[in-house]
Design a binder for these strands. Structure first.
Lengths: 344, 344
DNA sequence: CTGAAAGCGCTAACAA
DNA sequence: TTGTTAGCGCTTTCAG
C-alpha cells in the first residue's frame, strides 16, 4: 500500500486557495510574506487535517539552500570528538540547520567518492574534525563556494577557516608543569606527524624544553589508537632501570593518556606520579575521574564549537566573508598525575 | 563573487549532446540506461572539465528517494552510543546512504519541531537510538510510510522494528554471576524506568534472584548520567557497616558502572571485588582496561548495527516488508570485578 | 540508442 | 493581499 505524499497543492485545493498561499503560510520567515489571517487559518486547518509538511528537498532546489551542513569525522572513539559532534549538532539545530555526517575511516574510505558525495548533497557548508583533509576536498569545495571550517585542525591553506586551541602554547604548558615538578627525563607520546594537533603540541613541548635548556629524553607515536599507545608505553618503560626510563610523560591527548596510565600502573606496576608523572591534553571527562586524576591541558571545547559555527555561518550568510583562523587559549588543569614540586 | 552551479544542461551543451544523455551517463545504475560508449566519453570529458557533480537534491525530488536516513540520538557521552553511531554511519555509507543526525537533548529539545524537521527532510528511513520515542513520532512516520527501526530500545507498538540484545536474559546472567560468586546482598543501580533497556535488565536480574530464592537488597536510579550515578553509589555504601551494605552491584550499563567503580574505590575506599563485586552491561572498551577489568554482559554491537540496517533497508526497498523485532543473545564477559567463587 | 517534453514540490517574481 | 506563471536540476516516459 503506497502512500502518496501530501503536497502544498493538495492543501490548497482543500482550503480553497492558491498553492502560493500555502507556500506563503509555511514560509520560514512569517513576517515577510503577506497572508491574511483568514487564509492562514484556512490553510493551517487543511494542512493539519491532511498531515501536510513542506518538502524541504523541493524548497532547497529552488532556494539554493539545503540548510544541511556536512560534518566530517574519522572516528568517535576519542570522547573529545564524540562530545564535539554532540555540541556541533546541537548548535546546528539551534540555527535551523542539520548535520549530514560523513564518517571516514581514514584507511577504508576512498576520499574521492566522499568528496563527490559531499558535493552532490549540496551542503551549505562543511565542518571537518579529526580528519586530515586532502587538499582535493578543500579545493573542490572552495571552488564551488562551499565554506569549510576545520575543527581542531589546521592546514597551511589560508583559504580555509579553522579553529584550534593554542596547541603550541598548550605543549609549552605541559612541559612547564613537568619541568617545574622537577622531572628530568621527559618523553612525549605523540599521535601521528600528519596531524597538525600532534605536531604543534609536540613542537610547543620541545620549545619549552629548549628554552629551559632541557633535552627531550625520548619520543614515540601512538597513532591516536589505543593499541599503538599501549605498545609505545611499554617500550618506554619495560625492563629498564629507573634511571634509564622516562620519569615524565606528555601524551598528546587524554584518550591516549588514559590508556598509557593503565599500562603504566597495571601492566608495568609503576606508580603515578611517584615513579612517573603524566600530562595529557583535551580534558575529557574521564581525566577528571578520581581513578585517573589526570593533569591535562584543557581545550575549551564549548568555545571551539561556538567559534566554528560562527565562522561557518558568517561565510554561509555572507559570501564575501573571509576565512579566518581562530585560536583559543589553552589552560593547564592540575590534578594528581604530576608529582609535587621537589624543593630545590 | 557568486558561482553558479554547473548543471547537466551545461555539460550537455559543452558535450554537444542532449541533457538526457548526461543524466543517463550519471545514472547510478549504469547497466540499465543505454548510453553509447562514444557519448559517454564526450559527456564524461565535458563533465570533468566543468567540474560537474549531479545534484542529489534535484534527483531526490524526482525519484522520491533522498538516500538520507534520519538518525536520532540523545547523547554521545556513553561510548556505547558513540560507537553505535560510528558503525551506523559506516553501514549507511557502504550502502550509498547518509545519516542526517538529530541530536535531541531529552529535555531541551521540543519533540514536535524535531518530528517536523525529520518529516520535512524526506528521509527514506529513521534509526533511533538512546531516545524514548514519543508515540507521536512513530505514528507520523509510519503513517507516511517512513520505516523506523529502534536501536537498543523497544516499544510495545508492534508497528515498529527494533533490535535489542536479550536484556532480560542479560540481566539474569548478571545475577547468576553474582550469586554464583556467593554474593548475598545484591543491589541494582538502574538507569531510568522509562527506558526499556533499563527495565528489562532489572527485570531479568530480579527474575533470576527470585528463581534462586534470593531477595533484592536495594535499588536506585542513576538516570544514565554520571552525577546521579555517583550520588546513588554513595548512598549505597556511605557510613554503613559491611553487613548493612551491598556486597554486589549490578549497574545497568558500563558507562555508569565505571563511574560507580571510581566512587567505590577512590571516594569510599572500598576494594573491588573484595568488598563489593560489580557487574556492568554493554562491554564498552573501557571495561576491558586493566584498571577496571569490569565483568559485564556484552551487547553484540556489530551484529546489532547490521541487523538494524538490514531491517531498515528491507522496509525501504520493499514497502510490504513487515516490521520485526530482532533480539540478539547476551553474553557474560568475566573479568576481575566479581569475587571468585567462595567454596561452599 | 538518443532527444524532446513532462513533471517532482516548491519559491519568487509579476500582475491583478 | 492574492493568484498566475516560470522555473530550480534532474529522471523518465515516449517518439524517432
Amino acid at each position: 500500500m503506497k502512500k502518496r505524499r501530501v503536497t502544498s497543492t493538495d492543501v490548497a485545493r482543500k482550503a480553497g486557495v492558491s498553492q502560493s498561499a500555502v507556500s506563503r503560510t509555511f514560509s520560514p520567515w512569517p513576517t515577510q510574506s503577506g497572508v491574511s489571517a483568514e487564509i492562514r487559518e484556512k490553510v493551517l486547518r487543511a494542512a493539519k487535517e491532511l498531515g501536510y509538511q513542506p518538502n524541504a528537498i523541493a524548497r532547497s532546489l529552488i532556494t539554493q539552500r539545503s540548510r544541511i551542513v556536512g560534518v566530517l569525522f574519522s572516528y568517535l572513539d576519542n570522547p573529545f570528538y564524540a562530545r564535539a559532534l554532540e555540541l556541533l549538532c546541537h548548535g546546528l539545530q539551534a540555527r535551523g540547520y542539520h548535520a549530514l555526517v560523513f564518517m571516514m575511516s581514514d584507511t577504508l574510505q576512498d576520499i574521492d567518492s566522499t568528496v563527490s558525495d559531499i558535493l552532490q548533497y549540496q551542503v551549505d557548508g562543511l565542518l571537518t574534525a579529526s580528519v586530515e583533509l586532502s587538499s582535493k576536498l578543500c579545493i573542490e569545495c572552495t571552488e564551488r563556494g562551499i565554506p569549510v571550517v576545520m575543527f581542531n585542525r589546521t592546514q597551511d591553506d589560508p583559504g580555509l577557516s579553522a579553529v584550534t586551541t593554542d596547541n603550541i602554547g598548550g605543549g609549552r604548558l605541559a612541559a612547564k608543569a613537568l619541568l617545574d615538578a622537577g622531572c628530568e627525563r621527559l618523553a612525549v607520546l605523540a599521535g601521528w606527524e600528519g596531524a597538525s594537533t600532534s605536531r604543534d603540541r609536540e613542537f610547543g613541548f620541545r620549545a619549552e624544553l629548549h628554552a629551559r635548556g632541557a633535552e627531550l629524553f625520548e619520543r614515540a607515536n601512538g597513532n591516536f589508537n589505543l593499541e599503538d599507545t599501549a605498545q609505545a608505553t611499554r617500550a618506554f618503560f619495560k625492563d629498564r632501570n629507573p634511571a634509564e626510563r622516562p620519569d615524565a610523560l606528555f601524551v598528546i591527548n587524554d584518550y591516549m593518556a588514559i590508556r598509557a596510565m593503565d599500562v603504566i600502573r597495571n601492566e608495568l606496576g609503576l606508580r603515578i606520579p611517584e615513579d612517573v608523572s603524566v600530562v595529557g591534553f583535551d580534558d575529557i571527562s574521564t581525566a577528571a575521574q578520581p581513578t585517573y586524576g589526570l593533569t591535562t591541558v584543557r581545550q575549551p571545547i564549548n568555545r571551539m564549537v561556538e567559534a566554528s559555527l560562527r565562522l561557518l555561518f558568517e561565510q554561509i550568510e555572507d559570501s564575501a566573508a573571509q576565512p579566518e583562523h581562530v585560536m583559543l587559549g589553552a589552560q593547564l588543569v592540575e590534578r594528581h598525575s604530576v608529582r609535587r614540586k621537589s624543593s630545590p
